[in-house]
Write a protein that binds this DNA or RNA. Sequence first.
DNA 1: ATTCTCCATGTTAACGCTACCATGGCCGTC
DNA 2: GACGGCCATGGTAGCGTTAACATGGAGAAT
Lengths: 356, 356
Amino acid sequence: MAVARTLMKREPPARKRRGHGAVLISDVARLAGVSAITVSRTLNKPQIVADSTRRAVQAAVDRLGYIPNRLAGNLASTQTRTIGVVIPSLFSNIFADSVRGMTDVLGSEGYQVLLGVTDDSLDMETKHVVSLLGQRVAGVILTGGMHQRRTRELLKNSGVPVVETNVMVRSSIDMVVGYSNEAAAYAMTRHLARCGYRRIGFVTTPMERNDRAQARRAGWLRAVREFGLVERAGLFREATLTVSHGARAFGEMLASDPDVEAVFLAHDMLASGAMFEARRRGLRVPDDVGIAGFDDLDIAQEFVPALTTVRTPRYAIGSTAARMVLQRIRGEATGSACVDMGFEIVQRDSTRRPPA
Amino acid sequence: MAVARTLMKREPPARKRRGHGAVLISDVARLAGVSAITVSRTLNKPQIVADSTRRAVQAAVDRLGYIPNRLAGNLASTQTRTIGVVIPSLFSNIFADSVRGMTDVLGSEGYQVLLGVTDDSLDMETKHVVSLLGQRVAGVILTGGMHQRRTRELLKNSGVPVVETNVMVRSSIDMVVGYSNEAAAYAMTRHLARCGYRRIGFVTTPMERNDRAQARRAGWLRAVREFGLVERAGLFREATLTVSHGARAFGEMLASDPDVEAVFLAHDMLASGAMFEARRRGLRVPDDVGIAGFDDLDIAQEFVPALTTVRTPRYAIGSTAARMVLQRIRGEATGSACVDMGFEIVQRDSTRRPPA
DNA sequence: ATTCTCCATGTTAACGCTACCATGGCCGTC
DNA sequence: GACGGCCATGGTAGCGTTAACATGGAGAAT
């Protein structure tokens, strides 16, 4: 039989086919009476195909319900229109705002976002980066500037444009867009000092693998020392990012240091917890205790009293990061860039007014 | 020179190569002294490779920093380990919880989530589904049971396992996991009626493209009629999903129907807004007005008074949906399934106690 | 000792698309 | 009227991996 097969010239091999039976570009081509490459052009660069051809191809596509296999297309063109985005958590509108900024910019340019969530684990971050590079993303947007050495090396060697967001870092992988968490926390603490508070507590999300949290604590501490405020171990707490943990952290602070005059919580959800805890304990805000948050979420302005907080340009960070990646992909920009988007202290009623 | 090259036998063709210069499986194979397929096996099915070979290959992989090209791998195997997940919004912990449930289950089985966000637009949903199918995902998890006809057809024709979540639908595309929004809203309204409230307002997120919101309204309305409660146009409002809009909707309801006795808001964020608005107006909760929410977010229990709400099994919905997709992929399950995960009324202090 | 199995590994041909180069027809130029 | 250039379209090879089948050697079975 093997001999017979060898003798027959145009006989297809008996080998088993692996395909799924899905509609292929060749099916469309046959129906439209053109070649496969013309179908490809109709779908990807319609302007270089003659009107009549385009209509015929489009009709065939519609009739067969053809959906191009992007795996094959991306492999053949050795490029994708996908940007990998790695964020610490889905449980916070902070990142949702930034992601929205990215998808708005990228979507309009035909690019897509591939999202990875790390839960503040650097191991997870590395895994996501490996996975993203394996899928040959055209760019990567990370949160923060703290990464495993392996992550940095993989990204640098890949040659893919990278943006680190929400921070200002000294030795970036490639590009950076964000604001100084240290400066923001310093500015808020200074504001509280000017309002007349002297014993100012600070609560942040766990700092171990989170350079934004570390920077915020550093900013608070610098202000505490610079303005000669009360420095005591009990005035610093870590709490995971839920309203309840914010409440609990503030409660514990009150237990250890009942004379605390103000708390600055490095996230509005934590601050919300503190507001509720104050209410439960019958503490008047801002008279008995001042409370300040971070991020200016929607809820901050609705609190009674409204919450003093730090406004951060989340959407703009996302859209800017996306734009920078696109520019780099197109070769319109080279060299590293570090964009400081700034922040803003939003004075509301949960802290006393500074003397005029 | 061209002639010389033609004469040399093993010279590669003069055609331009398209590759990126990245490390290839063949590079690893050469360094390890094995064939490409052995590298592939070492990475994908290590147990069928001899120990010594595996070590040699692994060393070569590490030394070269080889990252397999998933585009090529998935194309060659005509399968991916990616599940497409489509959710309406990133601005709500509801979906974050479900997505976490999915990634927990899928991640441990070597599968990955590809997330698409629709912003409650059915056009966007269709676009995402097309994109997901183009990437040949192994399964799709949707939110809700309301889709464009094209979406349903594409998914049915694709033969890919599909789960619709957060609803109970009559004519599902494939499988369903969720709870009855109608029953949940009915149950909460009944609860409010038993607490003695007669004029019960209802606020939901915009219903136009959201069958969950529609079902909640239907449940409220059924209870209103069944229990002979006051039915008035002003007692129904739509508000986009922010704390501020919840506050505003409640404010407007009070303006048009000052004698409203309780409001049921179909999301805890909306309910938070109402709680704040009540406080601002000096209304005592639950005496002057009862307030109930939906979803039992973390914040609900922290409010003063704590918020009565409907607890929904968000994480379990996500993990169950993921498990169902995996079973179907593995051929362990066939036929459609419709799993009702139920819900729970959580009575707290923002509504009066029902008579014992 | 011989045959049969099994195991580890190799060879080859897909997977489904697009980049690259080629071709043929039409138009304008000299 | 021959030639050059441009435009629309096509043929072919390649993108980088893995499925399918092939092979060769060690050990088991007879």
